[in-house]
């Protein structure tokens, strides 16, 4: 299995990473996800990594890339479910996952995306950048 399934839920794309990422899988995910944002016109991407016990700088970079790429295609990315041990390790390593938002779990992540993107019918540009 060299691909991680991407689910579409309304205006959002949902990805649940269940296995430890090796390089090929991660690069495929990056490409597939950006492609999916383009074809579906999704406004938000939610990546659930609660099953990951390890995130090294390579995977961190892939996640960061996805966030930045989605951003310039006008979609927000939220990473949810980072394990405490993984969070501590990432900080020690020097990775802060800039460019993506984080939330505790899928539910909170969805809420956050709704807040960032605003109600569906409103298509006005809201440029209030959120850190």
């Amino acid at each position: 299995m060299d691909r991680i399934p991407i689910l579409k839920m309304g205006r959002f794309l949902l990805v649940t990473i269940q296995v430890d990422l090796y390089d090929r899988l991660a690069t495929n995910l990056e490409a597939d996800l950006v492609q999916a944002v383009s074809t579906t016109g999704a406004r938000g991407v939610l990546i659930d990594i609660s099953a990951l016990t390890i995130v090294d700088s390579f995977m961190g970079r892939i996640i960061g890339n996805i966030g930045s790429m989605a951003k310039i295609m006008d979609a927000e990315t939220v990473v949810v479910g980072i394990q405490p041990a993984v969070a501590i390790t990432l900080i020690e390593l020097g990775l802060e996952l800039k460019g993506v938002h984080t939330a505790l779990n899928v539910e909170r992540g969805m809420q956050l995306l709704q807040e960032k993107i605003g109600p569906e019918d409103e298509t006005t540009d809201d440029d209030s950048s959120t850190e």
Partner: peptide, 8 residues
């Protein structure tokens, strides 16, 4: 920073 990564 670690707390923020968790989404809090």
């Amino acid at each position: 920073s670690a707390t923020r990564l968790m989404g809090a």
